[in-house]
Design a protein around this nucleic acid. Structure first.
Lengths: 365, 365
DNA sequence: TGTTAGCACTCCAAACAAATGAGTGCTAAT
DNA sequence: ATTAGCACTCATTTGTTTGGAGTGCTAACA
């Protein structure tokens, strides 16, 4: 269908199923950048002046007609300017990231107005992540989320049982990264001090250093054997541990800046706003953004319909994963309008990612 | 200024600085009830048909003119119907509560579609409160909040120090109501098992049964004396305990149903919605709703400007306090439009209040 | 052959103008 | 004291007009 396609000599990387003139690319970029700022459809005259191409508006118009036919831009209505299509954003972002990739590698993230002290000061993981999410939201003016690292690959560092009341035991687990979990366990038997000591030794010697999902039937049966007369208590405790793991299955997610969406009129109408904000309130819906497949590329940009979360189909979503320990990962997310400042957002999320990576790094490494 | 005031024989309770005809009261009530449902200004004709007073619209009009002059209702503009003023709501609510008070006392709260199992099942306070807030929001279609009981009057039930790493101790505190707090403490010294045991005995014997704000200098100095060579560790631990208390100063607050406000057009415009939802996101702003003065009446209704939270001046707010133990209180709140269904809201909040009271009651009582 | 000026055309948005109708206040009669 | 009746007000709705931004196309130009 395309009329003139003498452009193969420019676009090189054969991966994308598209062929774009250098000039067309420049024009598309100009349209998008303009639209990112203004949020209004942009016309040929604007581009003609805005770019250094020195082309008349008429020429631009022709090119724009082509770009529209190819699906990169679209008109809200006849005789309006053009706005980028999802496909347009996509090629823009991909292109941008190709360029930025090296730049980001060499220079360390520059968004360093994030106060370092946050990390030092805070000893609770929850607070740290909540603060980070807030900071990221404030810096970018988008909505943000950070998922707590999912635990099932995390290792038990320390486990302790203590008697709180006559039939109530407190079980405290400390995981790698100093994440603390506790649970009250009700037991039928009465337990004396000595037994308690034995139980604790048994628990620690059997479980320490194990990742949560490494606790299998073999280990369990070995433990119950060694427990002697206290088999049922050990069983109860293991059940409790299991419950902690299960509870952690639906990961905890911290969000911030949900109300930032009101800064973007295209998302502010009562209907979309309501749906979006609900998603942030019912955090579990956000779990679809959490990386589970480790194959995926490091930083991911979803534009419009690409997003895994239904309510965000008019948004763009950027996710990145941070690492706590081998295989133990969490996700950072930025949610904004499709016309988000991708460059800024990417650099901000990269910065947070690095901050979190270093925050969780064990000092001895 | 009022023309005809031969009404003193009806309104009895001399406490309110108002004098309202029985008929005027009926009309006012009719206006309000109508407005609660429709959300639209209500005219004289409507009232004439709606009530059983058998009065023509003209008569109603005269009465309405009086009511407006007295400040109970107002016109959005000339030739529109009337809507209740804050003062109108106020007298309506006060009147209603006077009637309901006894009714509520005798029959137990009827909103018992709240599943009991919630309380049994859940052992974490946070989850319980979060679920309760959610349930209340779902039932009422308003936004809700529940503050965790503030701790400074709560008693320590159990305290334990354990070694997690070479220079890291874990301090776990269990408070009355099985509320668990933990904190990682960094220490300089190395500590052997025996010392640890001694420290734990010292901590428990000194602190158990004490309310957090009963830990004064006397107790602290006695403890440090008994600590012998480990004075500085004890000091560090006490600091940690203090930090837990301080951290608890700005109470934790659980919210739900913030997006319910979009169900009420008068609150849905981008501006108010944004401000309101921000308040729910920055939960600390809600702390002004939390009861601190125990003098206050049991259930409180704030209408419009009366609310202590600035961003809610176009809303009505209902708060109630629940009790965990002597003096340890938390607050439940419902936030909705001024034209909220006060009756339903009051009965719902009462029900939750009772549920929480009984959930925290110690079984032996 | 690619670029540009010019022009007719489209269509949204804002501005203005009537038409509608719900609701009032007032007056005079009951 | 109550009510019917009537003139009046004013937000809302609907229709009409206008302005202008932006397009597509064609014909001229380098």
């Amino acid at each position: 269908m395309s009329a003139n396609n003498k452009t193969e000599d420019y676009t090189v990387k054969g991966s994308e199923p598209v062929e774009l003139d250098e000039r067309k690319m420049k024009i598309l970029t100009a349209i998008i950048q303009n639209y990112l700022e203004s949020g209004e459809p942009v016309g040929s005259r604007t581009i003609s002046k805005y770019t250094d191409l020195n082309l008349s508006s008429a020429t631009i118009r022709n090119e724009m007609a082509d770009l529209e036919e190819m699906g990169y831009i679209l008109q809200p209505h006849t005789s309006a300017g053009r706005i980028p299509s999802d496909m347009g954003y996509r090629i823009y972002v991909d292109n941008m990231m190709k360029v930025k990739e090296e730049a980001l590698k060499t220079k360390e993230a520059e968004v360093d107005d994030m106060k370092e002290f946050l990390i030092k000061k805070v000893d609770k993981v929850e607070t740290l992540l909540q603060n980070m999410a807030k900071m990221l939201a404030t810096n970018t003016n988008y909505a943000t989320m950070i998922s707590a690292p999912h635990m099932h690959k995390n290792k038990i560092k320390f486990i302790q049982l203590s008697q709180v009341e006559i039939h109530k035991l407190l079980c405290v687990m400390v995981l790698e990264g100093n994440i603390i979990k506790n649970k009250i366990i009700e037991v039928d038997d009465e337990i004396n001090n000595e037994t308690m000591l034995k139980l604790n030794i048994l628990l620690n010697s059997s479980l320490n250093g194990l990742a949560l999902d490494e606790i299998n039937l073999g280990i369990i049966s070995r433990m119950t054997n060694q427990a002697g007369e206290h088999t049922n208590i050990v069983r109860t405790v293991i059940d409790a541990v299991a419950e902690v793991i299960v509870a952690e299955e639906d990961v905890e997610i911290y969000t911030s800046g949900a109300t930032n969406i009101f800064k973007y009129p295209e998302l502010s109408d009562s209907d979309s706003a309501s749906k979006l904000i609900s998603t942030f309130e019912e955090k579990q819906l956000l779990s679809r953004l959490v990386v589970d497949d480790s194959e995926r590329r490091d930083i991911q940009v979803y534009i419009g319909d690409e997003t895994p979360v239904q309510s965000m189909k008019d948004c763009s979503v950027i996710t990145a994963s941070y690492e706590l320990d081998d295989g133990v990962k969490g996700t950072i997310g930025i949610i904004g309008p499709k016309r988000m400042d991708y460059e800024k957002a990417l650099s901000a999320i990269t910065s947070v990612k690095e901050k979190l990576n270093s925050a969780f790094k064990k000092p001895e490494e």
